[in-house]
Every structure is written in C-alpha cells, then in structure tokens.
C-alpha cells in the first residue's frame, strides 16, 4: 500500500495567538529558549532561529480603520518540489520521506547553507555553534510512531489539523466555503502550487494577498537555483571534457613545440 502523504492544515482564521504550539515545539524537540528581541509586537521573537522552528507571526492589519492580527504559523512548508533538496550538495543531509515530510539529517549536513538560498520560504537556519542547519521536521519522529506533531497535538482551537493531505485539502475547501458564508469573500487556500504543492496548507481570509501573512505570493524555487543545479551542470561538464579532449587531440595531432635549447646566434 502506498504511503499516505501527510499534511498540516493551518486555519489562520481560528488562531488566537496563544503560542501553545511554539511551546510544544520547543519542548518536544528539546530546544532551549533564549529571550530574543522585543520589537513592540506580541510575537515571541522576530524570526525563526536554529533552535526555534515554529513562530506565530502577529501580522498587524488595518481594514476600514479596524485593527486586527493576521496570524500566520511560520515554519517549514514541506514542499513536494523542495528547493532545499535541490540546492543541497551533501547526499542524505536533506531527505524527503515517503509520507512527504522534508527532514534535515544534521549528521550528514556540512553547513554550507545552500538550502537557505534554495528555500522559497526562507525557513532553514544555520547554527553558528554546530554549523548545521535546522528547521521544523513536522515531528517526523512522532509521525513515524503514529502520533500527531507536537504543535497540532497541543492546539486548543482546532486551528491546526493533521492528517492525510487529500483529506485536509477537502477540509480546507469546506472551511473556505464557511468563511465566504461569513462574508470573507476573499477566503481561500494557500498550498504553493509553484513548488508542486506544500504539505502545510493554509486557510486565509485574504487569500489574494498572502503577503499580508508574510507568505510569498507565488513561491517557486528561485530560477538561479534551478539553473545552477540544472543546465549549468551540463554546460560546465561539457566544457571541461571538451577542453581536455581538445588538448589530447591537439597533442596527438601536432605534438609539442620544438625545443630550442641550442644557442646558435
């Protein structure tokens, strides 16, 4: 039986910003929490870090003079066509499990940081101490043991749901329809078709403006990364082999230049 692709659904309209998922993530993954920067928001810290893989972003939004927060759970999106894997030179450092989880294996990581450049969502973080890159694993250890990822297990509002991707796509469209009934006509699903679909799905009230949530409008693997890891390889390989072959043929046809060690003038 084929392995089911798992996914996480984030219904941003239900997030109350309690940050329980952040705590659960830190606890399960045994991460130390160090106080970051206070930048006049309710966010725990401004950004992800090597030891902080799941951040609730409190995006401040003003609509007709009414202030609101557009909550967005910021973590690895577990792309089907993952830019980090495309960019990574070290075999086995980033693996895509049969269930769709993109997992970093720090034992094989060499700390080059190419994955950071390859990621369209700017998620991986390089640790200055261990020189390894870290990010959300979708609790692959828990999922492998039949459990739910820590963040989802702890969410009190059903904002987060875990399950098969197919089921969650359906649930997302149901939630979208409900939001539209409630008057949020711009509601929709964010699932990154440009990267072959993400295994983290969002229901957004303002689906046509994902930037408001801090999400890229049309996430794709950067074209320089695709070119670098695609056609450029073949051009360069052909150039190397062509040059070496040319040198060999030249030597066989014309041989070396004549020596002129005699001094007859």
């Amino acid at each position: 039986m084929a392995v089911t692709t798992v996914a996480k659904l984030v219904d941003t309209s239900l997030c109350i910003g309690c940050k329980a998922c952040e705590v659960a993530c830190q606890e399960w993954n045994d991460q130390e929490f160090t106080l970051g920067v206070f930048n006049n928001t309710y966010q725990t810290q401004p950004d992800l870090s090597p030891s902080f893989w799941n951040l609730i972003k409190f995006n401040e939004h003003v609509d007709d003079g009414v202030n609101s927060w557009l909550m967005a759970k910021y973590q690895c999106m577990h792309c089907a066509d993952a830019g980090c894997i495309k960019a990574c030179p070290a075999p086995g450092a980033i693996v895509q499990l049969p269930n769709g989880i993109v997992d970093f294996k720090q034992d094989n990581c060499i700390g080059c940081g190419y994955c950071i450049t390859g990621c369209p969502f700017d998620v991986p973080r390089l640790s200055p101490t261990s020189k390894k890159v870290y990010k959300c694993s979708l609790c692959s250890d828990r999922v492998g043991a039949g459990m739910t990822p820590a963040c989802i297990r702890t969410c009190p509002t059903n904002c987060l749901t875990f399950g098969s991707r197919t089921d969650l796509v359906q649930l997302a469209s149901i939630r979208t329809a409900e939001l539209k009934e409630d008057g949020f006509m711009d509601a929709g699903v964010y699932d990154g078709p440009g990267v072959g679909g993400t295994n983290v799905l969002y229901v957004l009230k303002h689906a046509s403006e994902p930037e408001k949530y801090g999400l890229p409008k049309d996430p794709r693997i950067p074209w320089t990364v695709s070119l670098w890891k695609g056609p450029l390889k073949w051009v360069a390989n052909a150039a190397f082999l062509g040059t070496a072959l040319g040198a060999m043929l030249h030597y066989l046809k014309f041989g070396p230049q004549e020596r002129h060690d005699d001094d007859t003038d």
């Binding site: 940081g113 950071i116 320089t224 360069a236």
Partner: peptide
C-alpha cells in the same frame, strides 16, 4: 549565508560556479 542578503546569495550561487 546567514549574513549575506538573499538577493546577493541568489546571484552568487550562479556566478561562483560559472
């Protein structure tokens, strides 16, 4: 990579191997 801006990195990863 953790210091260099993303736009510079996107150019550099192509320029360097070229």
């Amino acid at each position: 990579p953790e210091v260099a801006p993303r736009s510079a990195r996107l150019i550099a990863i192509l320029l360097h191997p070229v």
